[in-house]
Amino acid sequence: MRPHHAHQDLRAADPARDDSVAAIAARWGFAPHGRFSALYRREFGRSPGTTLHS
C-alpha cells in the first residue's frame, strides 16, 4: 500500500516547490532511500526520480 501512496505523491509533486524523492520516501516511512528506489523500480518499472520529473 505504501508504495502506491508514494507513487501518487511523486506524480503530484512539483520539483519547483522543492518536492524530492527523499522527502516523499521519508513521508511514507521508507528508509534508507536506496531501498525505496529499488522497490519502486520493481513495482513501477522506472525510477522514482523519473516519475517525479515527468
Rank of each mutant, 00 (worst) to 15 (best):
G45K: 05
A23Q: 14
L39W: 08
P3W: 10
A26S: 12
M1H: 10
H53D: 14
A13R: 03
R46F: 03
P15C: 11
Y40E: 06
R35W: 10
H4I: 15
R2I: 06
E43L: 14
S54Q: 07
G34L: 05
T50H: 05
D9K: 09
G49Q: 05
Q8G: 14
D9L: 08
A13I: 00
A13H: 00
S37P: 00
A25M: 03
P48E: 10
L10A: 05
R2M: 12
V21L: 11
P32I: 13
D18T: 08
F30A: 02
L52R: 05
F36E: 06
G45N: 03
D19T: 09
R17V: 03
A6C: 01
A22E: 14
L52E: 06
A22L: 08
H4S: 07
F36I: 03
L52Y: 00
A25N: 07
F44C: 11
L39R: 14
W28C: 09
H53F: 12
H7A: 04
P3N: 03
A22W: 13
W28R: 11
R41V: 09
P15L: 03
R2V: 11
G29C: 08
D18L: 08
E43K: 08
R27Y: 07
S20I: 08
A6P: 02
G29Q: 05
R42Q: 15
G45H: 03
H33Y: 14
A12W: 01
W28A: 15
D18W: 07
A12R: 01
H53S: 05
R27P: 15
S20T: 12
A12F: 01
L10T: 00
A16P: 00
H7N: 01
D14L: 06
I24T: 15
D14Y: 10
G34Y: 07
P3R: 08
T50V: 12
G29W: 10
F30I: 03
P3V: 09
R17D: 13
S47L: 07
S47C: 03
A16N: 05
V21F: 08
H53R: 13
